[in-house]
Simulated scan of single mutants.
Amino acid sequence: MTSRVQANGIEIAHDSFGSPDGRPLLLIMGLGSQLVHWDDEFCQLLADRGHHVVRFDNRDTGESTHFTELGVPGAGGAAPYLLKDLADDTAGLLDALGWDAAHVLGVSMGGMVAQQLALDHPSRVLTLTSIMSTPGPAVAAPTPAATAVLLSPPAHGRDAVLAQALETWSVIGSPGYELDRERVARLAGLAFDRGHDPAGTSRQLAAILASPDRTERLAALTVPALVIHGEDDQLVPLAGGQATAAAIPGARLLTFPGMGHDLPRPLWPVVAAEVAELTSR
């Protein structure tokens, strides 16, 4: 069941898996995505490996606070907030959960937020797992095809949104694995019903583009880190994961052929095992 807490001056929706006695593991989702995009089955795999898993809606997604009054960022206009603000939201959520520190796992934009959290709130991060992410958008530019779907005009109406989701993931998903069309449509429908907000996604994208590159600062991290990336990612190419791992001292880089900008179901047990190995050190 989803709960809501006050954190960093906003309301954040979250839920959890596993025993409260487990190792605290916070999952941070990517651009425009909601907590439901962390599949229940994947979260349960992590819980079964000894974690108390919490997933949540970032600001401007799902059932957390939406900054509707800020509108859609104009071309060349100032971003209404930065990744630093999303990291501060995440630290506020840790406070609300009563967690002094947690193992943190982020995908795509969530990986950027996880990196920022480790930089700005180092005492709160026990281990860092950054998946399909990058220390800065200029490090790994998306392919023209991925750029086209990322910047395509938002669809209107539930059926059109589901169709657009299928089109998007057929481009940026994992070419080495069959696209699970039922799963994509089901999650897109869940997200639409919980709080569809294309303008919020635009505000998050503006935050990514306006935030400073983290490469130099990441060199100061001492947290154990795991970097996972698909070798066939069109949205954040492999160079993003390579740069992240190279920037963080001692980070382990794990790449998968055929993986694009998603986590294919056959890789879930492998990823869960790798995360558990990191967090149980």
Rank of each mutant, 00 (worst) to 15 (best):
residue 177 Y to K: 00
residue 258 G to I: 13
residue 232 D to K: 06
residue 138 A to R: 15
residue 124 R to M: 10
residue 74 G to R: 15
residue 82 L to A: 11
residue 106 G to S: 06
residue 149 V to H: 05
residue 255 T to F: 05
residue 54 V to L: 06
residue 73 P to K: 07
residue 184 V to A: 05
residue 159 D to Q: 13
residue 203 R to S: 07
residue 3 S to T: 15
residue 75 A to G: 13
residue 20 P to T: 12
residue 10 I to Y: 04
residue 67 F to V: 00
residue 17 F to K: 12
residue 150 L to H: 03
residue 247 A to H: 10
residue 230 G to D: 02
residue 68 T to A: 15
residue 50 G to S: 12
residue 60 D to S: 10
residue 28 I to T: 12
residue 248 I to W: 04
residue 86 L to S: 02
residue 111 G to K: 06
residue 250 G to I: 13
residue 16 S to T: 14
residue 110 G to F: 10
residue 9 G to H: 13
residue 167 E to P: 02
residue 35 L to Y: 07
residue 227 V to Q: 06
residue 193 D to K: 08
residue 22 G to N: 10
residue 145 A to C: 03
residue 160 A to L: 03
residue 223 V to A: 04
residue 181 R to G: 09
residue 145 A to W: 00
residue 59 R to T: 10
residue 251 A to G: 12
residue 219 A to W: 10
residue 20 P to M: 01
residue 154 P to I: 02
residue 25 L to S: 01
residue 80 P to H: 04
residue 128 L to D: 01
residue 145 A to Y: 01
residue 202 S to N: 15
residue 31 L to D: 06
residue 233 D to A: 07
residue 177 Y to L: 06
residue 276 A to S: 15
residue 27 L to F: 11
residue 151 L to H: 14
residue 58 N to L: 09
residue 130 S to M: 11
residue 153 P to D: 09
residue 213 D to R: 10
residue 215 T to V: 03
residue 229 H to G: 09
residue 175 P to Q: 08
residue 182 E to F: 05
residue 171 V to F: 02
residue 274 E to K: 08
residue 92 G to W: 08
residue 18 G to P: 09
residue 75 A to W: 12
residue 264 P to Y: 07
residue 199 A to H: 08
residue 243 A to F: 09
residue 265 R to N: 08
residue 41 E to S: 13
residue 37 H to V: 10
residue 14 H to S: 12
residue 127 T to G: 00
residue 119 L to K: 10
residue 70 L to V: 09
residue 144 P to R: 13
residue 79 A to E: 08
residue 241 G to F: 07
residue 198 P to T: 08
residue 206 A to G: 04
residue 92 G to H: 05
residue 79 A to D: 06
residue 157 G to F: 03
residue 51 H to R: 11
residue 113 V to D: 00
residue 2 T to P: 04
residue 78 A to Y: 07
residue 19 S to N: 15
residue 135 P to A: 10
residue 154 P to C: 04
residue 256 F to I: 11
residue 26 L to W: 03
residue 81 Y to Q: 02
residue 114 A to Y: 14
residue 117 L to K: 04
residue 218 L to S: 04
residue 162 L to W: 01
residue 44 Q to E: 15
residue 89 D to K: 03
residue 125 V to L: 07
residue 164 Q to R: 14
residue 168 T to H: 00
residue 66 H to Q: 14
residue 177 Y to W: 05
residue 205 L to R: 09
residue 179 L to K: 01
residue 4 R to G: 00
residue 44 Q to S: 14
residue 271 V to K: 00
residue 92 G to T: 07
residue 88 D to P: 04
residue 169 W to T: 03
residue 143 T to I: 02
residue 148 A to H: 06
residue 278 L to V: 11
residue 162 L to Y: 02
residue 22 G to I: 00
residue 57 D to E: 12
residue 56 F to K: 02
residue 34 Q to N: 11
residue 222 T to I: 00
residue 237 P to S: 05
residue 131 I to C: 09
residue 72 V to L: 15
residue 79 A to I: 12
residue 170 S to I: 01
residue 161 V to F: 01
residue 39 D to T: 15
residue 123 S to K: 14
residue 164 Q to Y: 00
residue 82 L to E: 05
residue 20 P to S: 13
residue 94 L to D: 01
residue 223 V to K: 03
residue 140 A to Y: 00
residue 139 V to Q: 12
residue 155 A to Y: 06
residue 30 G to K: 11
residue 54 V to N: 04
residue 244 T to L: 14
residue 224 P to E: 05
residue 121 H to N: 07
residue 199 A to Q: 10
residue 114 A to I: 12
residue 105 L to M: 15
residue 194 R to E: 04
residue 231 E to N: 08
residue 122 P to Q: 09
residue 81 Y to C: 03
residue 118 A to W: 02
residue 3 S to R: 15
